[in-house]
Design a protein around this nucleic acid. Structure first.
Length: 288
DNA sequence: ACGGATTCCTGATGGC
DNA sequence: TGCCATCAGGAATCCG
């Protein structure tokens, strides 16, 4: 499922294909895929130029430009579990498209930007420019996102785990998955980082020593950085904007390995439900 | 302020 | 082999 490294990979592979192109047509095949309603969505997107593609947490962001180079708002895509964003040459038929944007020629042919999603959990949202009530800055999910894990220090990370200086009673994994605490981490990278840091997913966050919190932060950064270098993890659905799979799934030590031996000590990994998610961990290598 | 359940979805998987 | 139940999960929402 697309987490930070997967969305980062999509942003990178999409950017070179679509940046500077104009959005010439908008085809909404599944109205539940978008917001606001089709009329406003079209109005906010049609005729705009895709100036820049980047990422914030698990959100893919297309920054738009209006005529005269003015701010044109944003398109934000949340892929949830099975969403895909693909850059395709016209004529190629994508699998179960929900939204298709036709983009202008850039001297090397026109292009389609396709949002598809078998499970239909994902969303493509269009925001107005200018900081008004319809702008992305007023979208609570976006506004309340925690910091980027690759752009903060260990000290800032510790502060995020202890809001207003109070020790949190929440389980550490619940905090890692909370996008308002830190942005971009999902079930895969939470389990991978916790295993590498030797911390149980159900450990009470406030009871973890500063030294071990720093170790967790280092593990998060290491895992995310390596996953980005491997173009993300493809369990089954995830693909980049070219339709290519990632390879970090070959480096999983925890996720999906319940019952299999711990790669450090050989004990069978166990699984536990924490914060409503299946959490795989090693009883010997990870402690509260 | 926390955990838990529920909802949204469909495909994969496992038991019988 | 076929059928059915279960599971997977990000985030919103409600409830205790």
């Amino acid at each position: 499922m697309p987490e930070l490294p997967e969305v980062e990979t999509i942003a990178r592979t999409l950017a070179s294909e679509v940046e500077s192109r104009l959005i010439l047509d908008v085809e909404v095949l599944d109205e539940s895929a978008i917001a606001p309603e089709p009329g406003s969505f079209r109005e906010r997107v049609l005729g705009r130029r895709i100036a820049r593609v980047d990422r914030r947490g698990k959100l893919l962001l297309l920054h738009l430009q209006a005529a005269g180079g003015k701010d044109g708002g944003e398109i934000a895509v949340h892929l949830r579990m099975t969403g895909r964003v693909l850059a395709l040459p016209p004529g190629e038929s994508p699998v179960r498209p929900r939204v298709v944007l036709t983009l202008s020629d850039r001297g090397c042919g026109a292009m389609l930007l396709v949002f598809s999603d078998v499970r239909r959990f994902g969303r493509m949202l269009a925001f107005a420019p200018g900081g008004g009530p319809d702008s992305i800055d007023h979208w609570p999910f976006y506004r309340d996102l925690g910091p980027e894990p690759l752009l903060i220090t260990a000290e800032e990370f510790r502060q995020r785990l202890a809001p207003r200086g109070k020790k949190s009673k929440a389980r550490i994994k619940a905090l890692l998955l909370d996008q308002g605490v830190i942005a971009g981490i999902g079930n895969i990278y939470a389990d991978e980082a916790l295993l590498r840091a030797g911390i149980r997913p159900d450990a009470v966050a406030g009871a973890i020593s500063a030294r071990r919190q720093d170790k967790l932060f280092a593990a998060i950064q290491a895992v995310l950085t390596q996953a980005i270098a491997e173009n993300g993890s493809s369990i089954r659905d995830y693909r980049d904007a070219h339709g290519d799979a990632g390879s970090f799934q070959n480096h999983f030590r925890a996720y999906g390995r319940a019952g299999q031996p711990c790669l450090t000590c050989g004990a069978a990994l166990r699984s536990l439900r924490v914060a409503g998610r299946t959490s795989t961990f090693c009883q010997h290598c990870q402690t509260a």
